[in-house]
Design a protein around this nucleic acid. Structure first.
Lengths: 345, 345
DNA sequence: CCGATCGACTAAACCGGTTTAGCAGTCCTG
DNA sequence: CAGGACTGCTAAACCGGTTTAGTCGATCGG
């Protein structure tokens, strides 16, 4: 009835418990004959290892944690987590590690404390990195390995930490260059929260790309990645005395909301106004006009993050596959700058 | 350095290991005096229980599992899982249970087998229920408690299983009645996959509500909940010799795509065509026109599902808080039926 | 006043693995 | 041919809790 244990295998094979453990783990000190015999009996008995027992014995949890810190449903209500998790799992499951989820209010150090206190995980992923984020320091102090989903840390990361090296800047820069090439001169930005790293880095990239192109920096409205805030920001921009001819949104959700709002005011996209997004969520390709946006491979991020974290946990080095670079997907929400503006300059 | 164990507490308090265990678990057989003394020393030593050890000892995992089976990013790329998980966690974390995630290819029985084999979980949630779903039977056979996210099972559920009792029908019926009240006579449906329970039940509700209202059943196009399929379905409907004046979409994502496609063809919403969705995702309120849709409280589902599963795991009965009923949110994507149609009848 | 009962607690087994110490037997060496 | 090294295995401790069996002293009934 109940699952066979290593003890059952031992008595069945006529050897000791320790010998079975050695054989199953491929350690030396067991002759080839006995090893084969042990493996065979284990097979026929249908033995499978008990992570519970192993975890207690080796003082490891054989699991890693992902803390989701999103207030209500704001902040990327998009498909980031499902896709990211999917990437994590493909790596973790083949390495015998489980993925533990915890939902915490932001700034919830207690959530991380509890994870390490209870010893349920061997490491964690840190998402939604903030600009002055205390969590890496906290985790370092707690001694819990961590992979931060964000750009490479400026300061030297601790020995048990790593940054994934995702960099949104090239994608945003490509979007800006695309707009510049279309002749736009007033290119605005609707940013994410500036206390979030990916909110700030996208804004910096927009600003820098404009400078590189020799364009003056257009207006920037800070929003919070939610559709509602995107619509509000679009309204603010349209109400400007000299509204922009192009808007770079920090994510698709806001871009969609902005697109809808513009259209409802009789502003034609892309004839009067060009719009770009970021993320390339599924719906973006099916809007009218289809959204020009930056495509990111979040599943690949997940795979890389999991690979790296397991390296940290096991204390080995190694090379992590490069992250695929974000690429601009040009659809029909961007077009040449409206004529009056073009001649204006 | 290392965390104090129950043994440390015992020697510090000058009692035996067993006594400490009794005291900490509030079992009889310990005098009030010693109990207090033990609790105090545990407190000052900063003792916290080790789920690892407890799990091995009581032969339970102290964790429950959620298997996410979504092919790539299709099937509800929406915010269902984040919200649902958030609801699960509020209950689980207060009860000392962890949430384990596993991503599986569709219909991957092996995923469930592994979970129970490894003994990592005490129970699981089953989502995306199919019409002829083999998973409940499989789990029953494996002896793993399960809560099915779907309507109450027709057949008597096993002793270790429960259905959550979510019912999409009232929401869909309300949407159809709303359209009927607005004078629509050709009310179409863009459904989800008919092998999924929530795909089929929404379609059945649409069909039934039309009959109840004395209207003939309009055209129905089967789609797969993705934006792309929603756009295709909308195109099919518009190409009909006698296109519908209203379309009930099985989710918001498809409704959004359908809305965009209709508008791009010069069909005015809601003047020429009324559209309703299902889910009420955040963007829906910020489209132009804002989407009339059915609001569901997925977080509450999560809470209820977790509560019920823990009851099953602990083998106790009990009452689970009622699920909040889905409610129709009327916005501006629905309006009175176009005049020509109205007089047609 | 003696044996039974009860309350409070200790000792030890147990969960299912890993790991270390030790113990035969064999082989090599001087 | 004794001594040391090596091979292949066993026995037992250990991880950190829970739980059962048992001990000891005090209380109680007869």
């Amino acid at each position: 009835m109940t699952r066979p244990t290593i003890n059952d295998v031992a008595t069945a094979a006529g050897v000791s418990k320790g010998a079975v453990s050695f054989a199953l783990n491929g350690r030396p000190g067991i002759s080839e004959d006995t090893r084969r015999r042990i493996l065979e009996t284990a097979e026929t008995l249908g033995w499978t290892p008990s992570p519970r027992a192993r975890a207690l014995s080796v003082s490891k949890a054989l699991a890693v944690g992902l803390v989701i810190a999103r207030p209500p449903e704001i902040l990327r209500a998009d498909a980031f987590f499902p896709a990211f998790i999917s990437g994590l799992e493909t790596v973790l499951s083949t390495r015998g590690h489980a993925l533990l989820l915890q939902v915490a209010e932001h700034e919830d150090h207690a959530a991380y404390r509890r994870l390490v206190q209870e010893g349920r995980v061997d490491g964690v992923f840190v998402t939604d990195l903030q600009v002055e984020d205390e969590r890496p320091a906290l985790l370092e102090q707690l001694g819990l390995p961590a992979v931060v989903i964000g750009p490479h840390l400026g300061e030297q990361p601790g020995p048990r930490q790593a940054a994934l090296g995702v960099d949104d800047a090239p994608g945003v820069r490509a979007a800006v260059r695309h707009l510049v090439d279309l002749g736009h001169t007033r290119i605005a930005h609707v940013s994410g929260p500036q206390h979030l790293v990916h909110g700030r880095s996208r804004r910096d990239a927009w600003s820098q790309a404009l400078r590189e192109a020799g364009r003056s920096e257009g207006p920037c409205v800070e929003a919070d990645f939610s559709a509602e805030s995107g619509a509000r920001a679009m309204a603010t921009l349209l109400d400007l005395p000299e509204p922009p001819t192009a808007v770079v949104f920090a994510n698709d959700l806001m871009a969609m909301a902005g697109l809808s709002l513009a259209q409802s005011r009789g502003v034609s996209v892309p004839d009067d106004l060009s719009i770009t997004g970021f993320d390339d969520i599924e719906i973006s390709a099916h809007l009218q006009p289809a959204l020009t946006t930056v495509h990111t491979d979040v599943v690949a991020w997940g795979r890389a993050a999991a690979t790296r974290l397991l390296q940290l946990v096991d204390g080995v080095g190694g090379v992590v596959p490069d992250l695929p670079e974000a690429r601009l997907v040009v659809r029909s929400s961007t077009g040449t700058a409206p004529h009056r503006r073009r001649t204006n300059r």
